[in-house]
Design a binder for these strands. Sequence first.
DNA 1: TGCCAGGCCCTCTTTAGGGCCTT
Length: 207
Amino acid sequence: MSISPFAHTVTILDFETTGLSPNQGDRAIEIGAVKLENGHIVDRFQRLMTPGFRVSSFIESYTGITNNMLREADDCAVVMNEFADFIQGSNLVAHNASFDKKFLDAELEAIGRSYDGEFACTLLNSRRISQQATSHKLGDLVRYHQIDNDGVFHRALADAEMTAKLWLIQLDILNYEYGIALPRFSLLQRIGKTPKASVAKMLSEVS
DNA sequence: TGCCAGGCCCTCTTTAGGGCCTT
């Protein structure tokens, strides 16, 4: 059963992983998430998890998450079971959501859990409603929108916090530039799936 | 043996190729 389009709870999540593809054996090593209710952060989730094998030196360098840190972490199954509880009843947002969705799907399938929310993507939305931005990487959009940050990148909770702020900015853009206040979650999904050239027309019709 | 992600978008497109974005 899907979440109501009127649901006000949105969870913004970010995975750090051993690589790019669960189909190639890659696993999650960290999950970070913030839960928003009516635009305000009401809860946070951040856990390291051990994938069952050593991560590469590239991933250690890229994320700052070392094999020593993961040695003390719980198994993916334990952490993802807790995270499945955390996201129940909430729609989901991520930057380049197709990436995080495939890891969420893979890790939850491995423990026989599922979720009832639907995904929206701040990357696809940015390419449509911030077309003047020259790059839509999360870090570049943080600078472009002058989003407050503590200088930490490529850690799950820090990236989830910045993605949450980007999501709220996108809501502001819809409000101030298109006159759409309190858009349904489904509208944010539609923006990401609407052809780039047609977005302005679609939004003018909605407003 | 050799290769090795995948979804989305744009264009010099659609019988395709390449860039962007995520780790």
